[in-house]
């Protein structure tokens, strides 16, 4: 084997490895968070975020329009404060609502936004006020059992 040819092949091999790592990082891994980098920020306060995580999707009518970038606690109100990035071309009215839903019975949780009818748009950094918290399945089952028990009395 010619020395130059080996050098070429090894170079291509190493580049292929780096390319694979890049694709893994951007397409498969978490580093593709840049996808909504140019999006604008919205906040929403929930009493309970359930198992919502950073990078959980934000959806409108089932279509992903952004993602959760931060989840914190407002120390004054004791509400969970969820920060999201939304695609810039999606403009939401001020009376938009946000709920946390679960995909299927066991799937992951996501933020679903329901746009209202007001003509004014939410400004970047604005807060969605009408929120519905995550459904706590334990609580739900407990409530159901309790209702049944009290109803049969």
């Amino acid at each position: 084997m010619e020395k130059r040819a080996i050098d070429w092949w090894v170079g291509i091999f190493v580049l292929l490895g780096i390319a694979a790592l890049m694709v893994l990082a951007l397409r498969v891994g978490n580093l593709s968070g840049f996808a909504y980098n140019d999006g604008y920020v919205l906040h929403a306060n929930f009493t309970n975020v359930g198992s919502l995580k950073v990078r959980s999707p934000v959806r409108l009518g089932g279509v992903t329009i952004g993602e959760v970038t931060h989840i914190g606690m407002d120390p004054k109100t004791f509400m969970a404060k969820v920060t999201m990035r939304i695609e810039p071309k999606v403009k939401l009215p001020t009376d938009t609502g946000a709920s946390i839903y679960t995909e299927g019975l066991l799937g992951e949780q996501y933020v679903a936004v329901q746009p209202g009818g007001m003509p004014q748009e939410l400004k970047p950094g604005g807060t969605i006020t009408m929120t519905q918290s995550a459904v706590n399945i334990d609580q739900l089952i407990g409530q159901m059992v309790f209702d049944k028990a009290s109803g049969s009395k």
Partner: peptide, 22 residues
């Protein structure tokens, strides 16, 4: 397809899964 990639992306971490595997 969207779910396939989106789910993957939200659950795979670069340092925790990709780099430790390597």
């Amino acid at each position: 397809g969207g779910t396939f990639w989106a789910q993957m992306q939200s659950n795979v971490t670069f340092s925790g899964d990709i780099l430790t595997g390597l």
